[in-house]
Design a protein around this nucleic acid. Sequence first.
DNA 1: AAATTTGTTCGTATTTTTGCGAACTACGAA
DNA 2: TTCGTAGTTCGCAAAAATACGAACAAATTT
Lengths: 110, 110
Amino acid sequence: MDNYINKDYTIDNEQLARFAKAMGHPARITILQFLASMDSCYFGDIHNELPIAKATVSQHLKELKNAGLIQGEIETPKVKYCINRENWKKAQAFFDVFFKNCKEKTSCCH
Amino acid sequence: MDNYINKDYTIDNEQLARFAKAMGHPARITILQFLASMDSCYFGDIHNELPIAKATVSQHLKELKNAGLIQGEIETPKVKYCINRENWKKAQAFFDVFFKNCKEKTSCCH
DNA sequence: AAATTTGTTCGTATTTTTGCGAACTACGAA
DNA sequence: TTCGTAGTTCGCAAAAATACGAACAAATTT
């Protein structure tokens, strides 16, 4: 019973869902992709990439930060964002395992 | 401009976000994992795995179907669900490329 | 000191998601 | 025909997500 937070879902499934949920919006995918490919990653640069208001960008960034996929540091008067590589790798591993575990041999619906 | 649906986000980013969103709930992750590992995959079997009402399970299944990750066929009086392998592989490829594209060399926030 | 730059936070509105029970459909069994 | 089984759909309620402008904070420039 150690894999369960509250007897509903396993911790791993909760974690994977959390990562997936954070990626579940095109703006956030775009942000992650941008950060993953660039050196300079100030808030303003990110905002320029997106067709949404800065308040909304800030909110999306906060969600990505809460999910652990990015991190930010103040470089007054700017804020520098970047990928959280440690958790990025964790997420990558989670998705990798998840997709690999689909058996080719199952007979359902074929 | 062919990569854009409506000049907001690229089609690929929209698609990846759609897959991610579908995976963004522990119940749906659990369903996908179950289907990916089992031969028998009737609605009832799925329902038994989850701590939620059948109406809710049905709704989650519909979302997964809309995202293209699963498919169902009627086997009266039951309904047999399974992974949509074609789209599963597409999703796998999308996530794979996405996570790989994080350059190790970027200097931001280090 | 006043103004500018760079983001965040607040308040609010709208939409979407999540969840459930009850009603319904479709079929086979009694 | 009536009943039971297996799921879906409907109607609703509560919560969360999305989005924005306005107000705010912190530092620098004028």
